[in-house]
Structure formats: structure tokens, C-alpha cells
Amino acid sequence: MTIPHRALGTSLPAVFPIGLGCMGMSEFYGPSDDAESLATLARALELGVMLYDTADTYGLGANEALLGRFIAEGGAGRRARMVVATKFGIVREAGKYERRIDNSPAYIRAACEASLQRLGVEQIDLYYCHRRDPAVPIEDVVGAMAGLVQAGKVRAIGLSEVGADTLRRAHAVHPIAALQSEYSLWTREPEAELLPLCAELGTAFVAYSPLGRAFLTGKLDTNSLGAQDFRAHNPRFQGDAAEANAQLVEQLGALARGWGLTNAQLALAWLLAKQPHVVPIPGTRRRARLEENLAAAQVALNAGQMAQIEAVFAPGAAQGARYPQAGWVGMEGSA
């Protein structure tokens, strides 16, 4: 089966419709296993994955360094098959989730140089402003990013977790190749304004946490989350909200089993069928989960199936905010 690729703006190659989120390989989801992570990256490339997503804040640079190691081990041939995306803007201290946001042009230039060194590449394919500092005009932010494009250090630019007005203003300064925000069955807010605007502007929508940080898979035991696991402090994974959301996932699972799919495959197939300009980037550290996720690209859902899925996960059905209070710094999105 030939799987059509999806556009990432106009200056990047079209990519396999599912990318790989690398964050969990280094932080936020419990202990890391670099050997298995590197094997997962290799398997992803073998299966055709092109978009690899990281950020300078993931593991405080460790995630970029891990991806850089993978690139270096494969040489120029491996690098040519990858679209490497990273981000700037979140400044954190080791061992702390709390953060501040820096969007100053000087910081943007310095952060880019540091990311280039950790990744071991001459050019970042897709460079995102990870979070917004409202005190810095978006025109100044994008202007600094455009300067990196002109200098040959960045190929295309993107934004993360911004509103429609910010995206439109940014795009007027320089084409925005991709907008990255959370989007899944239990986070459908982007459908109101952002997804139509992205389609209008020719901007890809890169959906992070498309499996609800594994909650939608039906395989997550929320009672076993360790203190280092970000989800243990996430409102959607706690108390009454977790119980209500688990009931929705059970209904999703019944549909998936009836159609011979896993929850993860159904959730990803729904995203791909729902929006032609969406590229989900489910994160995983294990080859088995990677293979399960990528199989969703071969699933074709009909209108009746889409309606049944959306009857379970209607907009607003999920209970609880999608971030703890500290996580909302620099975000223009909604709970």
C-alpha cells in the first residue's frame, strides 16, 4: 500500500504522515533507556518515518544530543532521510518542571547555535518557537527566526501553542511551515479556529500528544505513575477526571476491537482521516509501540466509523485541564 506523504509548508519535503516525538526518550515519562531509544529511532527510519521532533528543553539538551548521536552514527545518508525539528523558548532548571519563557532575538540566536551543536547538524530543518512571551511582539520573534533562515542555519520555521491571531501576524512576516499544538480525540479545541487557518495559510498542523499521553491507548495504569512522570501531576490523570476519562477510553476500545484495531491505531487513524494537513507525532521509546502506531497510516476509516468515534469523544468530553498550572506559561491555547 502506497501511503501519501503530507506537506510541511513549501520549503521542506513532504513527510510520512506520522512522525516521531522524541521527548519521552529523555524526560517526563520515567527512566530513560538510550539503547532502546536509539533502536527505536533506527526502526522508525527503516519504516519510513521522516519527521523527528525534539526541543532544547527536553532533558535540558539531552534529547537533542541523543538525536544527534543517532544522526552521527548513520552519516550523511541517514541525515538526508530525516526532517529534524527542534524548539527554543522554554528555560528551566535541572530537576524542575517550572519554567520561564525567553523570546528575545539574542536568546533565539544563541539557542539555535546550541541546538546545532548538540544535534551535530549544519542546518535545522524546522525550528519552532516553543512557547510565547507576550511581552515580545511576534513580529520581532519571527523576524529573528527569519534571520536564521537567511543565514542558512534554519530551513523552515514554526510556532507552538499559539492562537489564530498570532499565527496570522507571524505568517505575514515569514511563512510559517508548521504550527505544533496538542490535538487528539480528547483535545479537539484546534478544530474551531487553528485548523481552518492552517489550511488557509498552507501551514501544516503538527499534533503532539495525539494519544493523550498514552491515556487513549487504554494501557496506562494511572496509579503506577512515578513521581518523575509528568502525568502524575496532570489534572486529566487524577481523581474523578481520570475515572470519567477512563470510561470514554473503554468505549473507544470497544470500537477498536470491533474493527480489529488497537486504541492507538484508531485514535491516530481518526486524526489522519479528520484533517489532511495534520501530521501527528506520537512519542514512544519502544519499537513495538512504534510499529503499532505506524500501522495506523494504513487504516482507512469510513464516515460511519468516524461518526461513532466522535459520538464517544465529542469536543469537550474529556475531563480535567490538559496541563498543571506551571505548564500554562507561554501558552495561548485553552484548557
Rank of each mutant, 00 (worst) to 15 (best):
L148T: 10
L148S: 10
V149R: 15
Q150F: 02
Q150N: 13
A151N: 15
A151G: 14
K153N: 08
V154F: 04
R155E: 09
I157W: 10
I157R: 09
G158H: 11
E161N: 05
E161F: 01
E161Y: 03
V162W: 04
G163D: 15
A164Y: 01
D165N: 08
D165I: 10
D165M: 05
R168V: 12
R168Q: 07
R168L: 11
A170Y: 14
A170N: 13
H171T: 02
H171F: 00
H171Q: 12
I176Y: 14
A177R: 01
S181I: 03
E182R: 01
Y183I: 03
S184L: 03
S184C: 06
T187F: 14
R188P: 03
E189T: 07
P190Y: 08
P190L: 02
E193I: 00
L195P: 00
L197D: 15
C198G: 15
L201Q: 13
T203L: 14
T203K: 15
F205Q: 12
F205T: 09
V206D: 10
V206S: 08
A207P: 11
A207T: 13
P210A: 14
L211G: 12
G212N: 12
A214F: 12
F215Y: 09
L216H: 10
L216R: 06
G218F: 03
K219C: 05
K219L: 09
L220A: 14
L220F: 05
D221P: 11
T222H: 09
T222S: 06
T222M: 08
S224R: 13
S224H: 10
L225I: 00
L225D: 08
G226I: 00
Q228M: 11
D229W: 06
D229I: 08
D229A: 07
R231K: 04
R231G: 09
A232H: 06
A232N: 08
A232Y: 02
P235L: 13
R236N: 08
Q238N: 12
Q238K: 13
G239N: 09
D240F: 02
A241Y: 03
A241M: 03
A242T: 04
A244C: 02
A244N: 02
Q247R: 12
L248W: 01
V249N: 02
E250R: 11
E250V: 12
Q251M: 02
L252S: 07
A254S: 10
L255Y: 13
A256E: 07
R257T: 10
G258T: 11
L261I: 04
L261W: 05
T262V: 03
N263T: 04
N263Q: 10
Q265L: 12
Q265Y: 00
L266M: 15
L266N: 00
L266C: 07
A267W: 04
W270K: 15
L272W: 10
L272H: 07
Q275S: 15
P276V: 02
H277Y: 02
V278R: 11
V279L: 13
V279W: 10
P282N: 06
G283L: 07
G283P: 09
R285Y: 07
R286L: 08
R287W: 06
A288L: 05
A288M: 04
R289Q: 10
E292V: 04
E292W: 05
N293E: 09
